[in-house]
Computed example of a mutant assay.
Amino acid sequence: MKQSISINKNEILKRYKTIDSQTHKGIQGHALIIAGSYGKMGAAVLASKSCLKSGCGLVTVFVSQCGYQILQISNPEVMTLTDESEKYISNITFNIKPQAIAIGPGLGQETETQKAFHNFLMTNTVPLVIDADALNILSSNKEWLQLLKPKTILTPHPKELERLIGKWTSDEDKFDKTIAFSKQYNLVIVMKGAPTHIIDGETVYKNTTGNAALATAGSGDVLTGIITSLVAQSYEPINAAILGVYLHGITADIALPETGYQSFIASDIIKYLGKAFLSLENQ
């Protein structure tokens, strides 16, 4: 029997951890973002910037060669590692020890990228957030789902969800299928939509923040960065997903009087993250 919980401010404050005044960047978490390909490097820029702006101490991005200058110039606070390939990721290797990894935004689905993703999943032990093209690659190779560690976070939009779980006939059917999928593989599913739901086995969390302004290119890349940041800061995956979705939504609620629906873009989510966090601090 599924249990439904509304994600309101009270639920968030039970989970939210204030920053220790004695902290330093070395204990605020190190996140790795594996993202981008030729023509889609903006996804890596947005995900890594939102990751930093959500409190992560260190952020490294792993991109194909063509993304090196883009990342170094657009996000000077982010460290950059490059693949050997020019236009897409073909071999995921790094010598850092991140506390959380995100993979997928702007990744593309080149055959070599798919092989690299598979090899990465075979050896990875770090908490993982999977989004966008990495989800589409998983949908084409469902046997790889067995390789995911417990409580890996998946962040599909409706079409990506359909590729993972199959078509549904009603909202109830969609939830039943997603719950079964979450239980089968022991995953946390961020079911993006209006509203967004987070599914952890039998428990369904319904977000209460956000509005139509969030229906804009890059919005999901920013959400991936926020959630990954929280996992790197040692939040439990389910709490990182719940808090990340809430913060992502509330940026649009705070911004709306200034931007309206039409002119709010994904970069504005990042711009208003400070005010989103302050709305939790001001108790």
Rank of each mutant, 00 (worst) to 15 (best):
D221Q: 12
Q28F: 09
F94R: 09
A241R: 07
I92C: 03
P98R: 11
G225Y: 11
A276Y: 01
E84Q: 13
A215V: 00
L138W: 14
E236G: 03
L280Y: 03
I254S: 05
A116Q: 03
C56A: 15
E112N: 04
D171E: 14
Q99T: 05
I70H: 02
V222K: 06
L52C: 13
K177S: 05
I5G: 01
S90V: 03
I242F: 02
V245F: 02
A213H: 13
H157P: 02
G220V: 10
D83H: 10
T155E: 15
L243F: 11
A217M: 04
Y68M: 11
N207L: 02
T80A: 13
N186M: 06
V78N: 07
L214R: 08
Q262N: 06
K149R: 15
K271P: 05
A180M: 06
N8I: 01
Q99K: 15
S90F: 03
F94N: 12
L81V: 04
L154Y: 12
Y38G: 01
S234D: 15
M79A: 08
E202L: 02
D173P: 10
T82F: 02
T208S: 14
W168T: 11
Y185M: 07
Q28H: 13
I250Q: 02
A116E: 01
K49I: 00
P76N: 09
I34D: 06
Q283R: 08
N211A: 06
D221Y: 10
D20E: 15
N91R: 08
V190N: 13
A35Y: 02
S267E: 07
K142F: 00
P156Y: 13
E160R: 10
I265D: 00
T155S: 12
A213I: 06
I103E: 01
S182I: 05
I130K: 14
L107Q: 02
A100P: 00
K177A: 01
T208G: 07
K174S: 06
A194E: 03
C51D: 13
Q184K: 14
K9N: 04
G260E: 00
T228A: 15
A35E: 13
L278Y: 07
N141K: 04
L223P: 00
I101C: 08
I103V: 07
C51W: 00
L52I: 14
A255Q: 09
H248C: 01
S90A: 12
G108I: 07
P156K: 09
K151N: 15
M191G: 00
K25D: 08
E143S: 15
H30M: 13
A180R: 09
N10L: 12
F175R: 00
W144I: 00
I12S: 12
E86S: 02
A217F: 10
G104E: 10
F277Y: 04
T209M: 13
I254M: 08
P158G: 03
A43I: 08
P237D: 09
L147H: 12
I27Y: 13
E172Q: 15
V245W: 08
